[in-house]
Design a binder for these strands. Structure first.
Lengths: 160, 160
DNA sequence: CAGATATAGTTCGATGAAGAACTATACGTT
DNA sequence: AACGTATAGTTCTTCATCGAACTATATCTG
């Protein structure tokens, strides 16, 4: 392990964020980093709306699939069933969604957005659109579509 | 809120993973999902190597930037400084890396991979390559490169 | 029908990450 | 030099998530 002196020419690179060398060519590496940073930035832009911003993905799934079972929702967002309990408790408490027994299976509950939840999702979705513009600066609309499609392919691959 | 009957034609869609409706067009949504699933799959493929697989990204950064400060590493992987402490403790305990005081700043420590750490990273990187093949099935090599480049652009945008 | 097996939602303990606060150190200003 | 401000790594608490275990319910098999 050697120590090397800083020279003037590399002062600018000294202040830059460290890079991951060969791992920069790995999709998994960039996926993780992009997600952490994106997630954080989206959440930082909210000081209201309770916990809902964090769970916009889940709320979108509930909205598109009203009355679905909790285990189905957990699967869809990539969480364990047990993790979803506290989340649903919170969102239910905030009046955003409600759980109700379903007629075919007495073990299970269906999940629905409330009217309030619908409006919260609408607000957050608009904010998310704005957030997306920051994410994709310098990327053409066509390329953005390609990016999203390819991520969809990755997701499908992982779900096989 | 209406309940609707299941008909035969949608039995196949009934078993499919729930989708996110309009949110499927959001990069943030797909980023998160792709990352959760990818991360989980990568980790599931390891029963040895201690905690190292989880932190391959970090180890890659350490490897590419030997002797850098902890706060710089935390920044690079998108973690808080406090979170990095326990991680480094673990990795140091497993003989993968070492922290050492640096001469210019008595508050700070530099982080280096050990020889053992180098070999662990090599093994994990090969496994990650294999993992990548599963992720990108059905995506051409050129498109995969495009995907990675675009994610790099997203990351740079988020770091501005 | 009885019993074995599987499953939905929940609880609880463990783990990883964030955030506040801390100590020691460094830097800037007067 | 003295003092105010900033910072690196750490500790401790809180929170989100996982995984094991649980109870009630559903399904399958003989």
């Amino acid at each position: 392990m050697t120590t090397h002196k800083t020279c003037q020419a590399s002062e600018e690179t000294e202040n830059a964020v460290l890079r991951g060398g060969e791992l920069e060519r790995f999709l998994g590496y960039r996926l993780r980093l992009a997600q952490i940073l994106s997630y954080r930035k989206f959440e930082e832009s909210f000081t209201d709306h309770g916990v809902a911003p964090r769970y916009l993905g889940l709320l979108g799934i509930v909205r598109a699939n009203p009355g679905q079972l909790q285990n189905r929702l957990a699967e869809a967002v990539g969480l364990q069933r047990s993790s979803l309990v506290a989340i649903l408790d919170r969102l239910e408490k905030e009046g955003i969604l409600e759980r109700r027994p379903i007629p075919d299976d007495r073990r299970a509950k269906g999940v629905w957005l409330t009217e309030h939840g619908e409006s919260v999702v609408a607000v957050l979705s608009r904010a998310a659109l704005e957030h997306e513009e920051g994410l994709t600066r310098g990327i053409s609309p066509a390329d953005r579509m390609r990016l999203i499609d390819m991520l969809g392919q990755v997701i499908d691959n992982l779900r096989d």
